[in-house]
Structures are given as structure tokens and as C-alpha cells.
Simulated assay, not measured.
Amino acid sequence: MPKAEQTRGRILLTAERLFAEHGVFGVSNRQISEAAGQGNNAAVGYHFGTKADLLHAIVEHHTAQMERIRERLLRARADSTDLRDWVGCVVLPFTEHLSGLGTPSWYARLAAQIITEPQLRELAGAGLHDAPHFYAVIGGLHRCLPTLPPELRRRRDDMARTLLVHTCARREHTLPADPDAARAAWSETAAELIDAIEGLYLAPVTGIKPII
């Protein structure tokens, strides 16, 4: 592997860890460069540009890997009319990817920050323009909910995403060090999330006006 590529990878992983531990806005490019073992304190700027560019690169890196899992799931479930199958296509790319990162990992905790902070969420959303399988999954899920009003469906999508990411962030923080136990923990988390998110979409519509 070329030295520049190794350096980029080391910076990405270091930034991800520091962002997860201290917050995206609590870490400087200089701190990331130093923690990544770079003698040049401007290494982040040289390899990535701004902090926003660095964060975007982290999101793109993980999105590309999750897209490969979505593609596999879509091949097996594309013709399904079962909501649970499609909820699995929402949950499993995230949990399988996190499981594959080993322990410790930090991306779920960073993702929890991203969906909480509007500025970061907008940046992460831009990375999904190159995620066609993500949109295919959402389309398949929505076809299973023909009677759910579009605006309510959108809000439940947001609830499901929040539940998925924050549950995984908590699980990531408490993962056992043993690799087999960690994989089992992710499998258990995935099963619980599929149950919960399927129930969220199938919950009755009571007619109570939403709180804005």
C-alpha cells in the first residue's frame, strides 16, 4: 500500500475515534494530526482539506461498505412484500458493518452525533447521494406501508433512524472485548432493533396531533 494511502487511513481512523470520544467540534485538525503520529501538524489539511471534508470522507468510507451489504440483501429480498424483510434491510447493513469493524470501534458513536447535530446531519446526508441501494431499501420499505400517510411515514422513518443509530451507539460503547462475544452482541442488537422498528411502523395512527 502506498505511504500516502496508509497515512490517509491512519488519519481517518484517528479522527473517527477522537470525534466519537470528544465531539466533532471539540477536536482540531492539529490534534488529529498529532494523535495520528504525523510530524506535520497540517497533515489533515494536506490529505483532506477542511474538517468538513475529513468528516465527509469518514462517512463516505463507511457508506461504501454498508452499500455492499445492502446490495447483497437486496438481491435476496428485492421481490419481498414482507415489511420485516425490508426493516432487516435497514438494520442489518449498519449492525453487520459495525460488527465487522471489531472492537473497539467508534463509528456508531460518531453517527449518533451526526444525526443529532443539524449541520453534521446535512453533511452526512450529502454522502448518501452515492448510495443507490440505500434509496432502493427505503423504496421497498415504503411499498409495504401503502396506507400510512406520507408525512407520518417520513416522521416514522426519522424515528426508526434515531432508534437504530442511538441504540447501536450505546451497544458500541459497552461491547465486550472478546470478539465472539462482541459479534453475538451485535446479532442480538440487530434482532431487537428489527422487532422494535417493525412495531414502530405498524403502530396504529391515533389521530392525535403531533407536537411540533
Rank of each mutant, 00 (worst) to 15 (best):
L13Y: 07
A43C: 06
Y46G: 01
F25K: 10
H47P: 02
I32P: 06
T103I: 05
G45H: 09
H61S: 07
F48E: 09
S28K: 03
R109C: 05
H22Q: 12
G125H: 12
H62C: 13
N29I: 08
E67N: 04
R30M: 00
I114E: 01
A52F: 11
P104E: 08
S105P: 00
D85E: 12
G125I: 05
P132V: 06
P104V: 02
E96K: 04
E96C: 04
L120P: 10
A20I: 00
D130N: 13
G88R: 07
I32N: 03
R10A: 15
R121A: 15
L98M: 07
R72L: 13
Y46Q: 03
E71M: 10
G39L: 04
C89L: 12
A52E: 11
V87R: 10
H129E: 15
R72H: 08
S33M: 07
A15Y: 15
L128R: 12
A131P: 00
G100P: 00
L98R: 11
S105G: 10
S80F: 13
E117K: 02
E122S: 14
T50K: 00
L92G: 12
A78F: 15
I69E: 00
A124D: 15
H129L: 12
S99L: 04
V137K: 03
L101Y: 04
A111I: 00
L13H: 07
G23D: 00
S28C: 06
D53T: 05
S105V: 03
A111T: 01
L73T: 08
Q113F: 04
T63Y: 01
E21D: 14
I58L: 12
G9C: 11
L101F: 06
E122Y: 07
R77M: 14
D130K: 01
L55V: 09
Y107S: 03
Q65R: 15
G45V: 06
M66W: 07
L55P: 11
S105R: 02
A20K: 11
R75G: 13
Q113I: 07
L101S: 10
G140D: 03
S99K: 09
P93H: 09
A52R: 09
I138V: 14
F25N: 15
E96Q: 14
L54R: 13
A126F: 12
G26P: 09
E60N: 11
P118L: 10
F94N: 13
G125K: 04
R121V: 12
A112V: 07
A36D: 02
H47S: 02
D79R: 07
L83W: 09
E21Y: 09
L120C: 04
G9L: 06
W86Y: 06
G140Y: 08
V27G: 02
M66V: 06
G140V: 06
L92N: 14
S33Y: 05
A64Q: 05
D53V: 03
V87F: 08
H61V: 01
F134Q: 00
L12N: 08
V90G: 04
F94T: 14
R109I: 00
L83C: 14
I115D: 12
A57F: 03
W106H: 13
V90D: 13
A108R: 02
L18A: 10
A42W: 13
A57D: 08
A35P: 01
